[in-house]
Design a protein around this nucleic acid. Structure first.
Lengths: 127, 127
DNA sequence: ATAGTAATAAGAATGATTACTATTTTGGTG
DNA sequence: CACCAAAATAGTAATCATTCTTATTACTAT
């Protein structure tokens, strides 16, 4: 399922993820672009977000109880989710590759990597 | 949405999660119990898993690209997911409360807790 | 310009989960 | 024990996120 041809839609979808640092969902991208591109199809958005994730151009972020979100930041990092409003923030701390080896040695499992989601109450919801 | 009355169904659902350490999904619990309880409703399974999670009797485990799973182990711990077969294992290492304070001090965010999912290729899939 | 293939739009289909409603259980109370 | 109100259930419809299908359009190498 590699990308082989340019498409204007994919370009728009990619730019939307890059420019909107709210970690947009497929629905967000669709509504955002729909205004100026009324012919855009939701299936196209899903398909391209998937392709762009697979190619490494963007990252898919799975958050409990939420539709998948996408992130233009491709360097390894973590995420924080507000338990009230669901807002997602990037967390840049040194990647803890050491915990992978710790778990590997403790369990004997073959550890490829890990994801961390921090739970927060964001400043806006603290009221 | 607290639990106020006993129900035989809830008891069965709870026991299924406790006894089946595969981190069963709602569908798994339903099929598992359906054999001996043909009148059981899928909605009842979902409702009770939700209630039991809320009351702290069991834990809901969100895994990317999988239906939610449930865990009878309520002590804080982490999970490892096989990227091939989707199997989920418990990972018992010391809970890293220190990374919460690290992130809190680095970002100024109010950190309530965190979840870690390790990615593995499980022994059975290593072929 | 043409041909071959990838990508699209539109809508149907799927999978997981929640909501609705009429009926049944449960757990007090007299 | 019989009665009652609240809670829970079964069965089914509805919703939400996502993927699939198909006919058509766009892209690119020749």
């Amino acid at each position: 399922m590699a990308i082989r041809k340019y498409s204007r839609q994919r370009e728009l979808i990619y730019q939307t993820v890059i420019e909107n640092q709210v970690h947009p969902s497929a629905e967000f991208v669709y509504n955002y672009l729909k205004k100026d591109n009324p012919q855009l199809s939701l299936g196209t958005v899903y398909r391209n977000l998937q392709q762009l994730s697979e190619s490494g151009a963007i990252c898919r972020v799975s958050i409990p109880n939420q539709p998948d979100r996408f992130d233009g930041v491709t360097e390894p990092h973590y995420h924080a989710v507000c338990s009230k409003c669901g807002r997602v923030d990037d967390i840049f701390i040194d990647n803890m590759t050491d915990i992978d080896s710790l778990v590997a040695s403790k369990t004997g499992l073959n550890i490829i990597g890990h994801e961390i989601v921090f739970k927060t109450i964001c400043p806006l919801c603290k009221n």
